[in-house]
Design a protein around this nucleic acid. Structure first.
Lengths: 213, 213
DNA sequence: AGTGGTTTGTTACCTATGCAACAAAGAGGG
DNA sequence: CCCTCTTTGTTGCATAGGTAACAAACCACT
């Protein structure tokens, strides 16, 4: 945020159009069928220039994801204090923000996660989500002291991985759905599912529906 | 057609995006309100680069028109032989092509000719149409030998100018119309009007409606 | 296995574009 | 009127990108 943003206009332009072309092409013909030549032609960028910036199409698609994900995180940073009401009906704001981000970048995610997309991208996105969850886990604990005894046999990584699959599944369903639900609505539904599944699996004491409100 | 098309990709790209930005901006804020800086920013082109290619925004808009108009003419060239049936119900194919061209470039023409557009562009377009008409006049004569005595007092330029106004008016009405008429339909209606007005003013013998068919 | 056609990376040289800074000319507006 | 702010053109220098050509890998046949 500090010393950024003085990148040569040509570079920003090149990145912009290569990324845009990539997303279009994935939508049209699927990730695997795309050649570097296709991307370059669509973007009106010389193929040699492509290789000055990206190793191959995998690198390109990875960087697309990383950049948009980073922009998500940057956009999330100002919000740290939603410790107020965290219950079944009120998903933490971070999740609402995630879905808002997805809505903004819906072309990208529909292209990448859909059946024409890149399983490789999907896997990479899951890794990122797992990281995001672990880094922010303390935000979601209903109350700090309420953790119960954990099932010692349960691998630590499993519930997080399960949760990431739920998230991706929710996104894919949302983006392919006819009706246009709001990010907050989707976040709430995601939260309904995650609340019991994830939190109770991790040994948190979960209030039953209707119990404390 | 022969030795064309080996222009540096960067130049083609620069032209493309500057022209695209120009059309967008005219649609959004009107021709007069646009600054060179606006165009450059929208197109992701440095302002200095703008001046390497165009004198000012007037030059840019002129070149946009000339290039699309040239593409129209180039696209028309293969068709020389529509001498068959030229009557009230069958406009010469050249006019159908003109309206097809307008349909393809409808963003440009709606932006330029509409009330946010450029009167200057409109005038320039009229000049071009006049040239086009004069160069192709012999195609429209119903029969070569049927020209009557011409009103000697009538300035040669007037009927052509009148016709160009009719054409522009027809285009503007078409592009702003809710319903989507086909180019051929519009060409026919244009022809209905032009047939008697223009041809008879120029001293051609015009068959009366229903007379010879 | 061989063969023609595509795609991939990579290179050396040239050119279009970016950048920053400038003077000068509008354009308000107090 | 003067003053500030924007916009216009223009310039010298630095650099990203274009071009063409190349070898290598890949692929689909047959």
């Amino acid at each position: 945020m500090s010393h950024e943003e003085q990148i040569d206009l040509r570079i920003r332009r090149t990145h912009h159009f290569l990324q845009e072309a990539m997303i279009e092409l994935i939508t049209e013909k699927g990730f695997e069928a795309i050649t570097v030549g296709d991307i370059a032609e669509r973007a009106m960028i010389n193929r040699a220039t492509f290789y000055r910036h990206y190793q191959d199409k995998y690198d390109l698609v990875a960087r697309i994801f990383e950049e948009t994900a980073d922009s998500l995180v940057a956009h999330m940073l100002p919000f740290h204090k939603d410790t107020d009401q965290i219950d079944l009906e009120h998903p933490p704001e971070i999740w609402v923000q995630v879905f808002e981000h997805v809505a903004e970048q819906r072309h990208l995610y529909r292209a990448m996660l859909g059946k024409n997309g890149s399983p490789w991208f999907t896997a990479r996105m899951r890794e990122y989500i797992v990281k995001l969850i672990l880094e922010n886990e303390q935000r979601w604990k209903p109350s700090a002291g309420s953790r119960q005894q954990i099932d010692q046999a349960l691998p630590e990584a499993l519930p997080v991985m399960q949760l990431s699959h739920v998230l991706i599944g929710t996104i894919v369903w949302w983006l392919e759905s006819e009706k246009r639900y709001t990010p907050r609505q989707i976040a709430t539904w995601f939260w309904h599912f995650a609340f019991y599944g994830y939190l109770s699996a991790r040994g948190y004491e979960v209030p039953l529906p209707g119990k404390d409100r």
